[in-house]
């Protein structure tokens, strides 16, 4: 019997003429690391270090005092309203833009991206111009005793504004790349619109949808500038977590400020971890499809 087993090793190693000398490689890696360390790793580590510098008791006290708890509640509330609304918007926008051809599509896509390019401060200001006391609807709102600016509704509106594009811009290219054949087949087979969406489109884009939602949520919970303009900074009432960090910091209560900040930093780390997991799922999906 002759050996018929093929060699298992995938690729024979070949020397490449297109590689840098080893010392160049390590110098570049070293430079990149130095930059990332100074601007990325050390700031991240310092948040947790400063938060725990005065011990666990101070840390726990800072994140369980009533003002902090109310800030956590408000932040969760704002995100719980803003994220689902932007999710519905993102799906509607992606369905219209990715599955149909119509005039002005590129303009619409650009308009959806607008909130990303507007300064957070301006995002907050425009709501003051509409709902504030001197704003368009201000007198009417005052007459009916409805508070939007310096109250929770304003915070929610500003949060929605800054997070509008996240889910839409994740879904649009994804749904465009998948074309319309599968949905058309479903139509031929007699499915109605909602059946097509839930049975055909949604399973195809679920990871992208989740990815956009996670990023949207991170920004919704972390937004500072826009919310700062409309909040009025009333402790225990219109203070979100990031605003609470600012108040504590400005009172030189650094340990508490960093303790609250560490909650937001953990949110960021969880977001990044989920993002990495979803990306690897996506890559596996793509590979599965191409084969």
């Amino acid at each position: 019997m002759t050996a018929i087993a093929l060699p298992v090793s995938p690729l024979a190693h070949r020397a490449r003429p297109t590689e840098e000398p080893v010392w160049v490689r390590w110098t570049l890696i070293g430079l990149a690391f130095t930059f990332l360390t100074l601007f990325l790793f050390v700031p991240l580590i310092s948040v947790f270090y400063e938060a725990l510098k005065k011990g666990w008791e101070v840390y726990i006290a800072a994140i369980t005092e009533p003002d902090a708890v109310s800030a956590i509640q408000l932040t969760l509330t704002a995100a719980a309203i803003a994220v689902p609304l932007n999710l519905i918007f993102g799906i509607a926008a992606a369905w219209a833009i990715a599955k149909f051809e119509f005039l002005g599509k590129n303009l619409l896509t650009t308009l959806i991206d607008l909130p990303f390019s507007v300064s957070p401060v301006v995002s907050g200001l425009i709501y003051v111009l509409i709902f504030g006391l001197q704003g368009w609807l201000g007198p009417w709102l005052a007459e009916h005793d409805i508070k939007v600016i310096f109250a929770v509704p304003g915070i929610v509106l500003a949060t929605i504004f800054v997070t509008v594009p996240f889910i839409a811009r994740e879904l649009i290219p994804l749904m465009q790349s998948q074309g319309t054949e599968e949905e058309e087949a479903a139509v031929v087979l007699g499915a109605n619109g909602w059946q097509i969406f839930f049975r055909v489109t949604l399973p195809n884009v679920k990871w992208g949808l989740l990815y956009g939602t996670i990023l949207c949520n991170a920004r919704a919970m972390g937004e500072f500038g826009a919310v700062s303009v409309v909040s009025g900074h009333i402790r225990g009432s219109t203070n979100t977590l990031p605003l609470h960090v600012e108040i504590l910091y400005n009172e030189y209560n650094f340990a508490a400020a960093f303790a609250v900040a560490s909650l937001l930093a953990m949110l960021a780390l969880v977001t990044l971890a989920l993002k990495t997991i979803i990306e690897s799922k996506n890559i596996q999906n793509d590979k599965g499809k191409n084969r």
């Binding site: 690391f33 990332l36 990325l40 790793f41 050390v42 700031p43 991240l44 310092s46 948040v47 400063e50 957070p120 990023l215 991170a218 919970m221 972390g222 937004e223 500072f224 500038g225 977590l241 990031p242 605003l243 960090v245 600012e246 910091y249 650094f254 400020a257 960093f258 900040a261 937001l264 930093a265 949110l267 960021a268 780390l269 977001t271 990044l272 971890a273 993002k275 990495t276």
Partner: peptide, 25 residues
Amino acid sequence: KLVDALVDLPFALPTAVAGIALTAL
């Protein structure tokens, strides 16, 4: 892989947190 994932930190970290951390450093 860890470095690759952490590059996106400035997108995910609330700006106020970045602000106080950088100031302290």
